[in-house]
Design a protein around this nucleic acid. Structure first.
Lengths: 337, 337
DNA sequence: CTGAAAGCGCTAACAC
DNA sequence: GTGTTAGCGCTTTCAG
C-alpha cells in the first residue's frame, strides 16, 4: 500500500480511501491511485482489512446439501440481495450429509462473518443456540426457535395440493410422508386438515424424502383393495419415484392416478417429468433471508420467523379421476377447465 | 487471547501454540488452556491469524454453476482430500451463469487463499492467465493452458459410447453435439473417430447442453428417411430430453432406439430414467485437483494437465437394434450378455 | 516452556 | 483533502 502511495505520489491514507470507494477523493487523485495500483498489481488484503474494521461485510452461508438444486435458487436470490446491501457471500457446504455442519459454522465464526445463513440446517437446537449467541443466524427452511427463520408455509402447501385434487374430483387421496425431513410434518398436517375439511378419504404412508420411499409407498398402496385416485408426495423426488412405480404396474398418470409433488425443483420442471407440484418461492425466501440478516447486523436483537406463501404449479401429472363421476361433479369439473 | 492466557495462568505464546495444535505442549497445560478458552468463549480470529502467518491454509473454490449436481460430487472428494492435507475450503459460486466469475476469483485473491480451484470455468484465457500470475489455479473440466487442468478424457468417453453401441450391433449412430460446452468437441471427436474405426454410419446434429437441444435433435432426425438405431447425446440432460421426445413419437427406448448420455449425473441414476451413460470419475477428479493445488502451494511451478479415464455405466436405455440381425451378429450379441 | 518485542496490511481518528 | 499515529489479534523470534 505504501508502494502504491509512493507510485501515485500521495499518502497511504488516500490510497485507503480510494480502495474502499470513498466519495471524498478528487477524481484526479483517484485515477492516479487506481492507475498506480494497476501498474503495481496491488490488491488489498481482505484479512488485514477486516482486522482493522469492526465488521467483515461478509455473510457466511452454510449449505446442508449441495446436491439439492433447490438450494441453488435460493442462493441466487440471496446473493443478489446481499450484494445490493454491500455484503459478500462466502459459502461452505456441510459435506457428508450434515455431519460437518458444526465445523462449517465454526469456520465462519473464526472468520468473523457478520451473520450466518443456514440452508437446511440439521444442527441440534442446543448447538444452534450456542452459535447464535456468538453471531446472528438465519435458518432457511428450519423450525428452530431463538434464531431468525425463513421458511415456506408447508401446511398451506399441503392444503393447496389437496384443494387442487379435490377440485379435480378426487375423493380418496394418499400422502407419502416425508418423515423427519424439513417441513414434512407441516405438510402432512396441511394434507390431513384439508382432507378433513373437504370430507375426502385420506391415508398417510410413512416415508422420508428419498426415491426409495416413493417406490415402496406405491408397493404398499398396490397391496390394498382400493387404490387412491390421487397421491400427494412429500417432495418431487418421491413423486417421481412413485410415478415410475405406478407406470411399471401398468397404471397411467394422471389417467388412473394423479400425483402432486412438493418443491417445484428442476426435476419437476423437466419436460419428461412435467410434475404438478407445490412451489416454494425461492427467490423471495432468499431475499427475505438476506434482509433478515442485514437487520440483525444493523442491531435488531430479537429473532423473528418469516413464513412465505407457496403456490401450486399445475403440470401434467394431475387430472380428474378416471372413475365415472355423477352428473353434478362432472359439471364442476367442466367449470374447472 | 491475553485473557485466556491469564485465565489459564500461562503465557500468551503458549496459548498460541495450543490453538494451532503444536505437539510441544504438555498435556496438562494444554488442557488448562483449552478449558480456559471454553470458559471464556474464546475463538481464534482467522483474519488476524492469516495476517500474521504467511499462508492461509485455505483453498478457494469457484463453482460456475451450482445447479449442476455434478459439481457437488467433485466437491465432496475435493473437501475430503483438502481436509486431509490441512486445508480448508471456501466456496463461492459464479452466479448468473458465469457473469460474476471474475468477481468471485478476485474476492478469493483478496482473501489470499493459497490456491484457487475453478469448477467449470468460463473465464477468458487472458483473464485466467492474469489471475494465474497471482495465485496457483487449478481448472477442473476446462481446456486452458498455463494453469493446472484436471479433466476427464472426453474423447475416450465418446469412443466408449460408440464401442458399446457397436457391440450391441448398431450400424447407424447419431450424436447430438454439445456445441461450446466443456469437452463437447472432444466427445464429438471420439464419437466420429470410433464410428470411422468401426465402419459404422454416423451423423452429428448440432446443439448445446440444453434440454431443448435434445428435443429438437429428435425432431430433426424424425424428418429423415432413416432413423439411426442409436443416439449418443452430449450429456445426460440432452439424452433424457431426447428419450422423452422419442417416446412422444411412439418409439420405444431401447427397443427402437438406444440412447447413451454423458456425465452419469444424478438424473441418469434416477430409476425413472435409468440412463446408460459415460461416467466421469468425479471423486478421482476431486482428489487429483486437491493434490494438484497442494503441489503448487508446495512449490511446483509448472502447470500440468491431468486427464482421468471415464467409464461406461450400462443401464436400461441401450440395447441391440430392433432390426433382425444376421445369424453371425446374433451370436455376437449372445456372447455379449 | 516464558516473556518481550516486532510486525503482518490495513483502517480510523485526529490534526494539519 | 492530506499526513500522522495508533492499534486490530495474532504469530514469530529470541533470549532466558
Amino acid at each position: 500500500m505504501d508502494d502504491v502511495a509512493a507510485e501515485a505520489g500521495v499518502s497511504r491514507a488516500l490510497v485507503s480511501l480510494v480502495m474502499r470507494g470513498s466519495p471524498k477523493v478528487s477524481d484526479q487523485r483517484r485515477e492516479a491511485v487506481v492507475a498506480a495500483a494497476a501498474r503495481l498489481g496491488y490488491r488489498p488484503n481482505a484479512a488485514a482489512r477486516r482486522l482493522a474494521e469492526r465488521r467483515s461485510n461478509t455473510l457466511g452461508v452454510v449449505i446442508d446439501d449441495l446436491h439439492n438444486t433447490y438450494h441453488a435458487d435460493v442462493l441466487d436470490a440471496l446473493h443478489v440481495e446481499a450484494e445490493a446491501n454491500g455484503f459478500r457471500l462466502l459459502l461452505n457446504a456441510a459435506w457428508l450429509r450434515g455431519r460437518n455442519e458444526s465445523q462449517a459454522v465454526e469456520m465462519f465464526l473464526e472468520y468473523r462473518v457478520d451473520a450466518l445463513i443456514l440452508l437446511g440446517s440439521r444442527l441440534e437446537p442446543d448447538a444452534l443456540a450456542a452459535f447464535a449467541a456468538e453471531c446472528p443466524i438465519v435458518v432457511i427452511g428450519g423450525e428452530v426457535s431463538g434464531v431468525d427463520v425463513v421458511r415456506n408455509d408447508d401446511k398451506r402447501g399441503g392444503e393447496l395440493a389437496v384443494e387442487h385434487l379435490v377440485e379435480l374430483g378426487h375423493t380418496y387421496i394418499a400422502h407419502i410422508d416425508g418423515g423427519e425431513g424439513a417441513g414434512a410434518d407441516r405438510r402432512r398436517r396441511g394434507f390431513l386438515d384439508a382432507c378433513a375439511a373437504h370430507g375426502v378419504r385420506s391415508v398417510v404412508i410413512p416415508g422420508d424424502f428419498s426415491e426409495e420411499t416413493g417406490a415402496e409407498a406405491i408397493e404398499h398402496l398396490l397391496r390394498d383393495d382400493e387404490l387412491p385416485t390421487a397421491i400427494f408426495a412429500a417432495n418431487d423426488l418421491v413423486a417421481v419415484a412413485a410415478i415410475d412405480r405406478l407406470e411399471a404396474a401398468g397404471l397411467k398418470v394422471p389417467d388412473d392416478v394423479s400425483v402432486v409433488g412438493y418443491d417445484n425443483t428442476w426435476l419437476a420442471a423437466l419436460r419428461t417429468v412435467d410434475l404438478t407440484t407445490v412451489n416454494q418461492p425461492r427467490r423471495e425466501i432468499g431475499r427475505v433471508a438476506a434482509r433478515c440478516a442485514q437487520q440483525r447486523v444493523d442491531g435488531r436483537s430479537s429473532p423473528v420467523t418469516h413464513v412465505v406463501t407457496p403456490d401450486l404449479v399445475v403440470r401434467s401429472t394431475s387430472g380428474p379421476p378416471s372413475v365415472p363421476l355423477p352428473e353434478v361433479s362432472r359439471r364442476v369439473r367442466g367449470g374447472q377447465r
